[in-house]
Computed example of a mutant assay.
Amino acid sequence: MRRPDFDDPDLPLSELFAAWPEMVAAFLERKMLCPGCPIAPFHAITDACLEYDLDEDDFRAELEQRACGRLRDAPR
């Protein structure tokens, strides 16, 4: 089975977490409750960023780094 398209703005968080489990940490580090949330199949990254008042471009860039396995322990 192919991985979903990370750049799809409608990609449900539940599918994101299933395809890239390493991304869960980015959500939990921000105390986001999206992993395991019953709404995750209906929310996308955009929805989560709106809910938690995050800059979507910055958050997506970090998620993309995690997906590529290039995230470094950089200060926030």
Rank of each mutant, 00 (worst) to 15 (best):
A44H: 11
L28I: 01
R76S: 05
A67R: 13
A18N: 11
A25Q: 09
F59L: 03
D58I: 13
D47Y: 15
E64D: 05
R2W: 01
E15A: 15
P21G: 03
P75W: 02
A40M: 06
P9F: 09
A25C: 00
R30G: 03
L33Q: 05
E51T: 11
A67F: 07
C68S: 07
P12A: 10
R72F: 00
D73H: 06
L50P: 04
D7P: 03
P35C: 00
A18W: 07
R60D: 03
C49T: 09
T46E: 11
P35D: 00
S14K: 10
C34N: 04
I45T: 12
W20H: 08
C49M: 06
L13E: 01
R3E: 05
R60M: 08
I39A: 09
P41R: 08
W20E: 02
C37N: 04
P12G: 05
G36C: 04
A40P: 02
D58Y: 06
Q65I: 02
I45N: 02
P75F: 00
A67G: 08
E56T: 13
Q65C: 06
D55I: 12
L16G: 03
A19E: 06
Y52K: 11
E62D: 02
Y52V: 01
H43K: 10
R72K: 13
M1Y: 15
L11M: 12
Q65R: 14
A67D: 01
D10G: 12
L63W: 03
K31Q: 05
E22V: 14
L16D: 03
A48N: 07
D10H: 13
C49K: 05
A18K: 14
H43R: 12
D47M: 09
P38A: 03
A67N: 02
R30N: 04
R3I: 03
C49S: 06
E64C: 02
L16N: 02
Q65G: 00
D10Q: 15
M32V: 07
D57A: 15
D5R: 14
E64N: 05
S14Y: 04
L13F: 05
A25I: 00
L54D: 03
A48T: 12
K31R: 12
F17V: 09
A74M: 00
A26S: 11
M23A: 09
D47F: 12
R70G: 01
F59W: 03
R76T: 04
D55A: 14
D53V: 08
D7R: 15
T46Q: 14
H43S: 09
E15N: 11
P38H: 08
L13T: 08
E22Y: 03
P41M: 06
R60L: 07
F27R: 01
F6W: 13
W20Y: 15
R3N: 07
F6E: 08
D58G: 06
C34I: 00
L63G: 07
D7M: 10
S14I: 09
E62W: 00
S14D: 07
A61I: 06
D47A: 14
K31Y: 02
Q65W: 00
F42C: 02
Y52C: 06
L16Y: 06
